[in-house]
Design a protein around this nucleic acid. Structure first.
Lengths: 195, 195
DNA sequence: GTCTATACGAAGATAGAC
DNA sequence: GTCTATCTTCGTATAGAC
């Protein structure tokens, strides 16, 4: 495998693992095993675990903004909903790439870390700039959009969809929070969506 | 110091530390040093680091619900705002106990962990039940309240208030998200609010 | 491009003393 | 109630070979 392909592969599996257990909870050996290579080779490729995490974070943020920009620039077509709703669906669709939401959330709770925290703040502000400057959201729209996005992410964080069917109140909460997106979420992150 | 007092003291400092660096990122030795005791004594007292974290989490959730219930049961007095706003202020006031919001968020992103994740889910659903059954929120009100709360927590997670003054766009984002609460937040979590 | 071997330092937990 | 000493395991990173 070429170095470039290997890099991508490692970043892919690392996104899933970091999403599951965060920076401190994930070992380079777990990444290596998931990628089918040796632990030292992972380190060799990225220098340090921290650099690996930063690349994973950058990629996740890049994918997010790329997804948003694509929606923003694509013709509405048969989708006559307001841009807020369309971008919201794009956010949900990121579930297609395992670990993105949860890796971002892990980064967002690491503000205290001098390196990762700085990157996380930059990333969040980048998203804000996109909403304000490119999507032309009003402050009120930004507030609603980000709020809903964060609730969505946190509910993924506690694995509410994965625990579907175990507690009626938990299921009801999903219904309340995800509303029309409930079906899609259960399909993409529901029980048995093993990693 | 009595065992009970020592317990409380350890739980206090552990809340701050777990809030800063999460379960995996915090060592029992850091907790011990912050409490001015030896590392083995911390373990001795709580059995394992995981049990310590679970107690910290329970306490944080307990404090949250206790705060909410107090507001719910207290007479409105001169505060004529709707209950959503009053509970929201209560949530902000939890900043008075260092680490509560961020420890909760760390727990909420650990859904994957069999033990901590289960406790986190239970905790979140407990909050939902409170809003639905005790505060009598409508589903729409629940959705808005939880959304705003999670955005609030995430912005604390990235330490946006602590980084105030470093990036105009970041400051603007704070304004957009915190609105009238901006002042209080900066006072309680702004730059120089060292731990 | 990828491995094996390994050094080195944490970090959680235990034993046992005072 | 609290400590010191220590065991043991784990995890990152390096060295160097193929």
């Amino acid at each position: 495998m070429s170095a470039a392909d290997r890099r991508e592969q490692i970043l892919d599996v690392a996104t899933g693992l970091f999403g599951d257990r965060g920076f401190h909870g994930t070992t380079t050996d777990q990444v290596a095993q998931a990628a089918g290579i040796s632990q030292p080779y992972v380190v060799r490729m990225f220098g340090t675990k921290e650099k690996l995490f930063l690349e994973v974070l950058d990629r996740a943020l890049g994918l997010l903004l790329q997804t948003f920009r694509r929606i923003l620039e694509s013709p509405a077509g048969d989708d006559d909903r307001p841009m807020q709703a369309r971008l919201g669906s794009g956010y949900v669709d990121l579930l297609g790439t395992r670990g993105v939401h949860r890796t971002l959330l892990h980064a967002f709770v690491s503000g205290n870390d001098p390196v990762i925290g700085a990157a996380a703040r930059r990333g969040f502000v980048d998203i804000y700039r996109f909403l304000r400057d490119e999507a032309k959201f009003t402050p009120a729209e930004v507030e609603v959009f980000l709020s809903q996005g964060m609730l969505f992410s946190v509910l993924l964080g506690i694995e509410l969809p994965a625990a579907f069917g175990q507690d009626p109140d938990a299921d009801e909460l999903m219904q309340v929070a995800f509303a029309d997106k409930c079906g899609v979420v259960l399909e993409m992150a529901g029980p048995g969506t093993a990693r």
